[in-house]
Structures are given as structure tokens and as C-alpha cells.
Design a protein around this nucleic acid. Structure first.
Lengths: 233, 233
DNA sequence: TCTTATCTAAACCTTTTGATTTAGAAAAAG
DNA sequence: CTTTTTCTAAATCAAAAGGTTTAGATAAGA
């Protein structure tokens, strides 16, 4: 929970100076906030964050100089407790999705009423996530469509299940982009044996080459025994 | 937008008969809803959905007989416009995450005030997503931690950005597991030209074969030009 | 205008892959 | 105690992929 005795320290990053001034005034109207800095440059913003360790950063993610999404990453890599609220002019599903994925704690449209912004700051500061209902819906639309393939593949008959243990080991190395010779070396078997296994894999997965075998494996939840594969979006 | 002249048809699935009765009464208090069926069995519930095509299904996802998450998938596979609201006793991040990923439009805790449930039905019926603030935060906690690994790959300089437009087109076809001849056919250029492009791609991505090129592309957020970004309104 | 980047293409050659057949040994299943 | 599965391996052959060099056409930029 948030300590109301201390002022919340807020940093503003927006390439539009006018907008910057507007937001600053708006926030300063509230006695419990303190704007510790404003800047039109993402790179400068990152430096200010390093220096001042603000509680909240309001970050315009539609900036020309540096990609806003990248900036989110850069800030999060600092490993501070600073929380990021993304500011954007667009309610683009993909943009919202990516911003949130990269660790933004809130997303506010510039067109939204100023009271929403204060609301967002308050919520995020107290450890919650702030997403207006419209954007939540947008987010989930995108989330569910991109996640759909994963669920589709996890059910039904998966040809991967027909593979033997050895074939699985071979396929795992195939998915790492390793050639016959190296696979033979790693499994300590002859290259021709590897070829035999690979051919059997092809038949079972109903493909004709390694690329398609790898693609099948990755898109059908093939789990390598050591590393956890991140199934893409 | 929802048509207020028609009653919203709701189906209830909960293995606890008492709870089922309670919810039914609660919903029937509201004149704009109609409970078209109640059942304690997930499998039976799916059949009822096939028969009655309800607008909303309130689905308890903590059932012994059949896994609630599986039931969500089964229902969605019917491809009806039926919207699912997950009911659960637990505010478990992973559970919420998976339920939403599988296509639930809302998630309500059984411990929540009954007015929240009505609220959820109303929101979901009108095409929105309903997640109480507490659960939204839980969801994003989980979402952001599981997505973290992915973001790692998209940071730093991405060699994919060095590719020309044509090289991107070729890479896109490579990631579909297509061979030189077919790529040449699709782009209406000669096979040797394709080879030239592919070689340039290899150099730029610092790999030696197509499999590794594809793996690089997939793990570094290569976006095929076909991928549809949902841009609404 | 000169230069650079991009797209196109061929020739030549080497390496890798993939397809097919055959077959022995060991282990598991019946 | 057979039969089947799995893992091993070799021999061939054909096809695809990859490496390298050279080069013309065009468009974009300095």
C-alpha cells in the first residue's frame, strides 16, 4: 500500500513539449504528487530515472527519436521500483499488448480525460495495473488471438507423441539448428544412424526436410528436455 | 451493443448444486436475464450449450469430473457466440492466466459480492472483458513474468533490421519451410537470385543455413508481412 | 554527377541433405 | 519363445542447399 505522507515522485517523458507542460501542470494541481523532471528525450529520460529514481514514469511511447517500447525495456533493465505508465495516442491492440508485455503497469490514451490519468497514477503507485476497460478489451482480443494457436496445438493428436526417445533427442538437436555431423558427435552415434533417425522423424511428422520438422516441433509444443522453449506469439 | 429488448440467456455449470441454486436465484432476480439451464456436469453443460446456444455461460472451473480449462476449450471449439465467464474459488495467477488465454471473457471469484457477478455478465454480454482489479493485477503479474524471457530476445540490436525488403520477403518464405524453387516461383525471380538473397540473409544474420536463419527469425520477433494486426475503429 | 544500395542473374563447385534399401543386435511385448 | 520395436549402421544415389565470384540494371543519396 502507498504511503500518503510522502509525495509521489513522477517523471514525464514526452517528445511534445506542450503536452509535457500540460501534464505537469495537471499533476502539480494535486498536492500529493511531485514532478521531479520532464524531458522530451527518451535517452535523457532514462538518465533522469537513474538519477532521481522516481516512483512513476509517464512515458509517451510514440516518439520518433527512440522507440517507446525499447525505452520501457531499458528502464526495466535498471531494476528500480520505478513503475511505467505508457502514454499513447493510439489504442492499437498490438501496441498495448507489447507495452504491457514489456512491463508497463498502465496504459493511458492521450485523448482520455485528465482525471483518468490521475487515477492511473494512483492505481499504479499502489501496486495495481491500470488499463481502461476499452483497452483491457483490446488487450485481451489480441492476447486471445495470439494465444489461440498454442491451445489449438496442445490438444488433438500430436504427431510428436509418435516419436521414440532417441528420435526425440535427435529432433531436439535439429531444433537447435545442428547438422548431421554434430548431432552424430553429440549422441555418439554414426552420421548414417542420425540420418536414419531423421528420416523416420520426417515420416512420422509428415514433412520432407528439417526446416519443416523444426517448424512442426516448435508450433506443436515440442519440449526439449533441458531448455524450456518459449512458444512464440 | 447489447439489445435490451431481449433477455440475456444464461447457462450455469457448477458441480456444487447449492451454489448453482444460489446463483440461479440471484440471476432470476434481474428481469433482464433468463437462466436457460443449470447443471453440475461439465459434459452435460457442453451438450446444453449445443442445444440452447446461450449468450453467457457461467462456468465453475474447479470441477473434479472434467477440467474447467478443458471445458473452456471444448466450448470455444463449438464456434458459437456464447461467452464464457469463469467462476473460481481461487485467485490463482496461473489459473486466471490460462482461463483467459483459452478464451474466457471474464473471471469472477465465488467470494465476490453478488452485484459483481451481475456486473460481469453485463459487461461481457456487451462485448467487453470483465476482470476485477485484483485479478487484473494478478493476471498481469503472471503475464509479465512469463513474457519476460521473450522480451529478452527483442532487446539489443536486432539483426533482422538490417535486411532489405526483398530479403525480408525471402526470409518470410524460408520461415514457412519453402525450398528455393518454390520461393523463386512465388517471388517470380530465378532460383539463383533466391540463392543470392538467402546467402545475403545468412551473412546478415550470422548463420550458415536456413534452419538457423529460421530459428533466428522466430526467436527475434520476425514479423511476417501477412500477420494481421488488429486495428479497429 | 558520381556513388552506393538493392535487386537481379549466371556459372561453378562443394557440401549437406534426403530417399531408399538392407541388416544386425538388443530389448520389450505378446 | 517368437514377434515387434528400437537403435544401430552402411551403401548409394539424387536432390537441394550453400559458397564464391562476377555483373548488369535501377533507384536513391550525397
Amino acid at each position: 500500500m502507498r504511503d500518503f505522507n510522502k509525495k509521489l515522485r513522477v517523471l514525464l517523458i514526452d517528445d511534445n513539449a506542450n503536452h509535457l507542460r500540460g501534464i505537469k501542470e495537471l499533476i502539480n494541481l494535486e498536492s500529493c504528487y511531485e514532478v521531479v523532471g520532464t524531458t522530451t528525450s527518451a535517452n535523457l529520460g532514462v538518465n533522469l530515472i537513474k538519477k532521481y529514481h522516481p516512483d512513476i514514469v509517464l512515458l509517451d511511447i510514440n516518439m520518433p527519436e527512440k522507440d517507446g517500447l525499447q525505452t520501457i525495456q531499458t528502464i526495466n533493465k535498471l531494476n528500480l521500483s520505478t513503475k511505467i505508465i505508457a502514454l499513447s495516442g493510439y489504442d492499437d491492440s498490438d501496441l498495448i499488448y507489447r507495452a504491457m508485455k514489456l512491463g508497463a503497469k498502465g496504459y493511458v490514451l492521450k485523448t482520455m480525460a485528465s482525471v483518468k490519468l490521475i487515477n492511473a497514477i494512483e492505481e499504479v503507485a499502489s501496486g495495481k495495473i491500470y488499463l481502461p476497460t476499452v483497452l483491457t478489451t483490446r488487450f485481451f482480443e489480441y492476447f486471445q488471438t495470439t494465444a489461440k494457436e498454442e491451445s489449438k496445438t496442445s490438444e488433438g493428436e500430436n504427431l510428436l507423441n509418435t516419436l521414440t526417445i532417441r528420435e526425440n533427442e535427435v529432433l531436439e538437436l535439429l531444433t537447435e539448428g545442428i547438422n548431421y555431423k554434430s548431432i552424430a558427435g553429440k549422441l555418439i552415434i554414426s552420421e548414417t544412424t542420425v540420418k536414419t533417425h531423421v528420416n523416420n522423424i520426417f515420416q512420422k511428422l509428415q514433412v520432407n526436410d528439417r526446416t519443416n520438422a523444426v517448424l512442426y516441433a516448435l508450433s506443436h509444443g515440442f519440449k526439449s528436455s533441458k531448455t524450456n522453449v518459449i512458444t512464440t506469439v
